[in-house]
Design a protein around this nucleic acid. Structure first.
Lengths: 143, 143
DNA sequence: CAGAATCCGTGAGGATACTG
DNA sequence: CAGTATCCTCACGGATTCTG
């Protein structure tokens, strides 16, 4: 049961070759495809950062809030719910006073986090090259 | 020249350990850090999809438009400009009639695309697991 | 073909206040 | 501590039109 999701242009693209193999199943480049929805979730800075930071060890809510500089508690709360719904993150509430809630990666989430860590490293390692390129680009426009 | 970018909470976090090694340089988890800006660019669905699709071979503008289902030409145009500014994508215009413009990855862009391909695969391979998790989650709420 | 320019709606996200 | 509930805005992106 692979077909069936709605896409207005699907008929022309559902069997487009990806590389050399034909991936008929799911394709992130198709508008209506579920894989695209998942990909959109990945392409969210808060999701990526949260999964990336949970990679090491579980965290509590306000701990995440502090460690991910700039995130609002609303965004954090919403993103965590989405991630839990997607099965990427576990939410464990301990009946202490006051309540303690711990977030951790599921097995599925761990497989994803493996891919995110390189992205984090890439950003940190290639930032200077990017900045130089931006300067060059901007100067050519103003001259 | 690593310090100097503005972050209201930098003083407390600029030397936070990432894993076991201290990454004092750049840190995507810091609000004002340039690496965060780059990371935000990565965490953009169109950027990821474009870089992912350019991985195979260069494409022309309307080719990209057709292959990336659902993108508007405005979004495509703007994203391509950002990617060019960041030094990830080359823009080559050939003086044909009408003009032909070809987009390709730079060397830097290629290093990034290596990391994106696994993300695409992950989305396509784990989508069913994610969908099942979503159903379970939703049913628990409605019961 | 490959865009630039304009108008416009909407919804994601910040700020703030409140709760168990 | 770990959230929920409102309000509000503003910027991103879609639709449309025009151009070299």
């Amino acid at each position: 049961m692979v077909t069936g999701y709605s896409s207005d242009t699907m008929d022309t693209k559902s069997e487009r070759a990806y590389g050399k193999e034909v991936v008929a199943q799911y394709n992130v480049y198709l508008k209506g495809c579920p894989a695209r929805l998942v990909f959109d979730r990945l392409a969210d800075k808060w999701s990526l950062l949260i999964v990336g930071i949970l990679r090491r060890e579980p965290r509590r809510f306000n701990q995440l809030r502090r460690e991910i500089d700039g995130i609002s508690q609303k965004a954090l709360s919403q993103t965590l719910q989405k991630l839990e719904r997607d099965g990427l993150v576990n939410r464990n509430a301990f009946p202490t006073v006051p309540v303690t809630v711990e977030y951790s990666l599921t097995d599925l989430g761990k497989t994803l986090s493996e891919l995110i860590e390189p992205l984090v490293s890439w950003a940190e390692n290639h930032i200077e090259q990017v900045l130089r390129s931006q300067h060059r680009y901007d100067e050519q426009r103003t001259e």
